[in-house]
Computed example of a mutant assay.
Amino acid sequence: MTQETKAEALDASPRLFESDLLDKLSRVHHLTPVIVYAPIILGLIFYSLTLNDPVLVALSLVVGYLGWTLTEYFGHRYLFHTVFPLPFGLGPRFQFLIHGVHHIYPNDPLRLVMPPLLSGPIMLIALAIIRPLFGPNLAWPVLAGFMTGYVIYDCVHYWTHHGQPKSDFGRLVKRLHMLHHFRDAEKGFGVHAIWWDYVFGTAYRKDETPGARAV
């Protein structure tokens, strides 16, 4: 297989569903998270400022953002890379749809960010957890911080596959994600929140023997 053929295979956008509608909904433009969630985030922040002290709102945004980074890390590590024992043998199919396909076609430009049909329920689940923990007033800025983290994550994820980093940090983030795809899929679970891999012992080390290519 030539380099050009390999590149075409990595960029492919395969059909995932027999239903034309479902298959179309599984593909989204990479700016979709920004377009959908930026107005919601701004609205939540402005509303929060009518209920809370600005310093408290800022702290809540940070808490929510950190909450997302942990969700990003543990979701990628355990949800995306685990085959669940679902009824009727659907576990492998479920894992393939939510993440496995991305490792086979990592540069598919229309499946590098979550479609709203997937990200929306995540935000509702987050709100259901945040509200009892932080109360009716602080729940909104915490949720805004959580959403902000998600948007950053999706934008960085697209950029790691199609962007050309200029800074040393940008090159590091891209390199670590490429190592996850092409060196060892059992490490490097933080896409933009790369620090959690160092905290939880899943960071790449130069002296390690490379693992199998992620598939």
Rank of each mutant, 00 (worst) to 15 (best):
Leu25His: 13
Phe200Asn: 13
His157Ser: 05
Leu56Pro: 09
Gly188His: 08
Val62Asn: 00
Phe84Ala: 00
Pro136Cys: 01
His81Cys: 04
Tyr78Pro: 04
Leu110Gln: 09
Thr148Lys: 13
Tyr204Gly: 10
Asp20Trp: 13
Gln95His: 08
Ala128Trp: 12
Gly64Asp: 06
Leu79Ile: 14
Leu56Cys: 01
His102Asn: 07
Thr82Phe: 03
Lys206Thr: 06
Pro210Gly: 11
Arg183Cys: 15
Arg183Met: 12
Val62Thr: 15
Asp20Leu: 11
Arg15Glu: 02
Lys174Asp: 05
Glu186His: 14
His192Trp: 11
Leu138Pro: 07
Ala212Met: 09
Ala144His: 11
Arg183His: 11
Gly67Gln: 05
Pro54Val: 02
Ser26His: 09
His81Lys: 01
Gln95Ile: 01
His76Met: 06
Gly67Arg: 12
Gly163Cys: 02
Leu127Ala: 12
Leu59Phe: 05
Arg183Glu: 15
Met178Phe: 08
Phe146Gln: 02
Pro121Asp: 12
Leu172Trp: 10
Pro210Arg: 13
His161Thr: 01
Leu51Tyr: 06
Glu8Pro: 12
Phe88Met: 13
Val28Ile: 00
Phe169Lys: 01
Arg175Gln: 06
Asp168Ile: 12
Asp207Trp: 14
Asp20Thr: 09
Asn137Phe: 09
Arg171Phe: 00
Thr160Gly: 03
Leu44Cys: 04
Ile125Leu: 15
Trp159Thr: 05
Arg15Ile: 02
Ala38Thr: 14
Gly91Arg: 04
Ile122Lys: 11
Ile152Cys: 01
Val57Glu: 14
Ala139Leu: 04
Ile40Lys: 14
Lys206Asp: 10
Leu176Val: 09
His157Cys: 08
Asn137His: 11
Ala12Lys: 05
Thr5Arg: 15
Lys166His: 05
Val113Gly: 08
Ile122Cys: 03
Ser19Lys: 14
Asp197Cys: 09
Glu186Thr: 10
Val28Trp: 01
Pro116Tyr: 02
Val156Gly: 08
Val113Asp: 11
Leu172Gln: 05
Thr209Val: 15
Leu44Glu: 12
Trp68Thr: 06
Val173Asp: 08
Trp159Lys: 03
Leu59Asn: 04
